[in-house]
Amino acid sequence: MLKRSSGVVRFCNYDVVFAEIPGETTLAINIAGCPNRCPGCHSPHLQADAGEVLDDEALEVLLGRYGPAVTCVCFMGGDGAPHEIARLAATVRRLKPKLRVGWYSGCPELPAGVAPETYDYIKLGPWVEALGPLGSPTTNQRFYRVAANGTMEDRTDLFGPSRSRVL
């Protein structure tokens, strides 16, 4: 069972990246306080409850700085406060309606009460080192493109030889 936070979201760092959301120039915001503790985690520093508070004001500053240079904002983590991440995603949509929004979650499925259409892209699944990353044919993680009606189309194939399916 995941430990739930008080709703305060913190971020350790951010970067403009090109691989996490295929076809997008993405402002990836690395969220702290990860409760998952996946063995072999490639970002164990994100397990600590550290970093700066990510609230609407901090998000607005980041969007002001990087919004014109990116096509997407992706929250990398946030499993301890999924409803707050969804609220921040709505803030992105309100402030910069043309930006697409993604969420990389280590949860095996979308948490109850989080509407898929909050996002344009969702990655689900914990890191399992033996199964490999999204590009591995044995990965347990799935990458979805979300339609306006909330339908999630599995597009893990964009990362490698995995096959697509619609949920």
Rank of each mutant, 00 (worst) to 15 (best):
M1L: 11
L2W: 09
K3Q: 14
K3W: 10
K3R: 14
R4V: 01
R4K: 14
R4D: 00
S5I: 01
S5V: 01
S5D: 12
G7N: 04
V8K: 11
V9I: 15
V16E: 03
V16Y: 10
V16W: 11
V17A: 14
V17P: 01
A19T: 14
P22V: 05
G23H: 07
E24I: 03
T25N: 11
T25F: 09
T26L: 04
A28F: 10
N30W: 13
N30Y: 15
I31Q: 02
I31C: 03
A32K: 00
A32L: 00
C34Y: 03
C34G: 01
N36P: 00
N36E: 08
R37L: 12
R37K: 13
C38V: 09
G40R: 08
L46A: 05
L46T: 10
L46P: 01
Q47C: 11
Q47W: 15
D49V: 12
A50K: 10
A50D: 11
E52Q: 14
V53C: 05
L54K: 05
D55W: 07
D55C: 09
D55Q: 04
D55N: 15
E57H: 12
E57Y: 09
A58Q: 13
L59D: 03
L59C: 06
E60P: 01
L62F: 09
Y66S: 03
G67C: 08
G67E: 00
G67A: 10
P68K: 06
V70S: 05
T71C: 09
T71M: 07
C72F: 07
F75A: 06
F75Y: 07
M76D: 13
G78N: 06
D79I: 00
G80T: 00
A81L: 02
P82N: 07
P82C: 07
P82S: 08
H83L: 09
H83R: 13
E84Q: 15
E84S: 14
E84L: 06
R87L: 06
R87I: 03
A89P: 05
A89Q: 11
A90N: 15
T91N: 10
T91A: 15
R93T: 05
L95A: 13
L95K: 13
L95I: 10
K98G: 09
L99N: 07
L99D: 04
L99M: 08
L99T: 08
R100D: 00
G102M: 07
W103S: 02
W103P: 02
G106D: 02
C107H: 12
P108M: 08
P108N: 12
E109L: 11
E109M: 10
L110I: 14
A112F: 10
G113N: 08
V114L: 07
V114G: 03
A115M: 12
P116V: 04
P116Y: 06
P116G: 06
T118P: 06
D120T: 06
D120S: 13
Y121S: 03
W127Q: 07
V128Q: 13
E129R: 15
A130V: 11
L131E: 14
G132Y: 05
P133C: 03
P133S: 10
L134W: 02
P137E: 08
T138G: 09
T139K: 00
T139F: 03
Q141M: 14
Q141W: 04
Q141E: 15
Q141R: 14
F143S: 02
Y144K: 11
M152N: 01
E153P: 02
E153H: 14
E153N: 10
T156C: 07
T156L: 04
T156G: 06
F159L: 04
P161T: 10
P161C: 05
S162E: 09
R163C: 12
